[in-house]
Design a protein around this nucleic acid. Sequence first.
DNA 1: CCAATTTAGTTTCACCTGAAACTATTTCCA
DNA 2: TGGAAATAGTTTCAGGTGAAACTAAATTGG
Lengths: 176, 176
Amino acid sequence: MSEKAPRSPSPAAPARPGDPLQLDLFVPYRLSVLSNLISHTVATIYGERFGLAIPEWRVMAVLGLAQHQGTPMCANAVAQRTEMDKVQVSRAVSRLLAMGLLGRTVDKADRRKANLTLTAAGTTVYQQIVPLALQYEGELLDTLETDELMMLERLLDKLTKTARGLSASFRPAEAP
Amino acid sequence: MSEKAPRSPSPAAPARPGDPLQLDLFVPYRLSVLSNLISHTVATIYGERFGLAIPEWRVMAVLGLAQHQGTPMCANAVAQRTEMDKVQVSRAVSRLLAMGLLGRTVDKADRRKANLTLTAAGTTVYQQIVPLALQYEGELLDTLETDELMMLERLLDKLTKTARGLSASFRPAEAP
DNA sequence: CCAATTTAGTTTCACCTGAAACTATTTCCA
DNA sequence: TGGAAATAGTTTCAGGTGAAACTAAATTGG
């Protein structure tokens, strides 16, 4: 029960040529394993009990909140809020329409857009899933102390911000 | 520049029925966004410069270390070390064999197994990628203070352990 | 005005992926 | 022994996914 081996003498020291790479100490790998583990469990919960895949659930989640706030949303707005791309949203929406959980009304003013809303059935499902989702999150975070939880939130923010920056900078040259 | 809104009065409070769910405060969602962002960038680096996908790189990473330690590995051992399933490993290995980065020798004692090793070409690639991977990780973690980095390691461990437990407990009944 | 560009959203294509079935070999034990 | 069960690894099949092409509507500017 004691696998200690600090990544390097001083934390976050610059990589030196010749350093070995131990996969299970490599943060991108560890994050990926954790995230996949969680997504898989969550997907199982949504999938088995409600026939929803994660992208579908995400769409419902933002529409449910929008509904709650009286702000109808179009597919594009959903895409931004969920950080999914428009293809994924388009597909999720058409599955949800087919399931009767969503309604769509073409915008009178701009006929390219369509406002999406939860149907009564969609609202029912939404209201069933939210507590399940929060329960899962609660159990996941249950073992964390208060300071750990606060730090988790902070780390998620910082790392996400940094990762966005690196995503741009590691991408090869851009066209003028 | 100040989006504050604590998830709930006391952190990790149990979910109450009627609680709304705000996707961008939901930890599984945030972890997924972060992990996808990182994976995408890393995949781009490996892919563009070396023609390797992430599963392929993972296989090379554990074989590279095994090599370094004089411990040849079979596909199954690789699967356990990388937490990938055997199908994924099988496919990654056959692509790497086709690229000439890996060699395979059927085990004399147990002819179902085959030992996998990096070829000279594979070793060259391995030695080029390791510093790149460590550089990316270094830049990602660069903005973190020492205490944040320590907490990150601890949180990854704790959450992964908890998530493994939940993965089992949320899964439906098992056959006798 | 109307042609060029932009924007919303969908479809296509080529690839990735996981689950389940399958092959080959080895181990277990009656 | 020898047949049942386990194990290593591959193949098949049935979706899921992103990038790029595409359609339709709206905006822009000459």
